[in-house]
């Protein structure tokens, strides 16, 4: 069924509601279906250039120093009528002391066959603060190969938070790589929450490079693997600067059979005062958690769902 432009935006908004986000079409600042820009509105304090290419878009966004935007900027990068080869390249430059919260949505409509690459680079100036929420909704009838790369460069005292979330329907063949380079006293937290279902193959790779004195990084992943899913987490931390800290925390929970899970930590310290830690677990849901809930009258399946939903929140 062919949908009109408004139809695609409305479908996108419907997907957002399905993942528990109550945004309306009016809240969106940007909406693109592969390389067809459906909607774009100016945001005060942000300069943005968008160039459609044969396979996607190139976008460069600049937030001037000191600009503080007190409402979330929402952008949708979808595939509703256009699939196939898809490449998005985005650069976000955030000036010294600027603050912004951005939601980007990767929404993939029904029956799309997709080989998509999103390459995003974020540069944060001194004491800049950015929260970037990357929320996916992949229709279960779509065939997806997706590579999402996020490179973040944090100057002195900058703060960066990133959340990647795919907790509804399917992930597909999904690989994500985060690379963070943290300057002095910069703080970076990246979280990934994914639910892999039958046929999904998921790879999450987080690399934190602590190059500035007193830099702090946290990588936290929660991966739920259901029947027939494969998931791999690679967490790397490089403590190069004095008094830098990084903690990698990954929990992979299994529910079902024919599941393959891997968890690979890499901690490399190049400074005696750097402290790097890693915490990993792979296995079924903790029996004690299930029993505590079952003592309230929940069945094992109900208790499992409660624990899983909590982890993926």
């Amino acid at each position: 069924m062919k949908v009109n432009l408004d139809g695609r935006i409305l479908q996108g908004v419907e997907y957002l509601h399905k993942v528990g986000l109550n945004f309306t079409a009016e809240d969106l600042a940007f909406f693109v279906d592969k390389n067809e820009i459906l909607f774009r509105k100016p945001v005060e304090g942000i300069k943005s250039e968008v160039i459609p290419t044969e396979y996607g878009i190139k976008m460069r966004t600049v937030i001037e120093p000191g600009v503080k935007i007190d409402y979330p900027i929402t952008m949708c990068f979808g595939n509703f009528q256009h699939g196939g080869e898809h490449i998005n390249e985005q650069e976000l430059i955030v000036g010294d002391g600027a603050e912004v919260k951005i939601y980007t949505f990767a929404l993939i409509g029904p029956k799309q066959h997709l080989n998509r690459r999103d390459i995003v680079t974020v540069r944060l100036g001194k004491n800049a603060k950015v929260e970037l929420y990357d929320i996916h909704y992949h229709d279960e009838t779509a065939e997806i190969k997706f590579y999402a790369e996020l490179n973040a460069y944090l100057d002195e005292g900058a703060y960066f938070y990133n959340l990647l979330k795919i907790t509804d329907k399917k992930c597909g063949n999904f690989k994500t790589k985060f690379y963070g380079e943290l300057g002095p006293k910069a703080v970076c937290t990246v979280e990934a929450k994914l639910k892999a279902t039958e046929g999904d193959e998921v790879v999450v790779e987080d690399v934190m490079k602590l190059v500035g004195e007193g830099a702090k990084g946290l990588s936290k992943s929660r991966i739920i693997a259901l029947d027939g899913a494969k998931a791999e987490f690679i967490g790397e931390a490089y403590g190069e600067a004095p008094n830098s800290r990084c903690h990698i925390d990954c929990a992979e929970v299994v529910k079902g059979e024919n599941i393959l899970l891997k968890n690979i930590p890499v901690l490399v310290s190049q400074n005696e005062t750097a402290k790097l830690t890693h915490e990993a677990s792979i296995g079924k849901i903790d029996k004690k958690q299930l029993e505590t809930l079952m003592a309230k009258g929940l069945t094992e399946d109900e208790a499992t769902e409660v624990v899983v939903q909590g982890m993926l929140r």
């Binding site: 003592a295 939903q309 982890m311």
Partner: peptide, 9 residues
Amino acid sequence: FQEPARFEG
């Protein structure tokens, strides 16, 4: 339970 479980989220 003596040690009630804790829950993320």
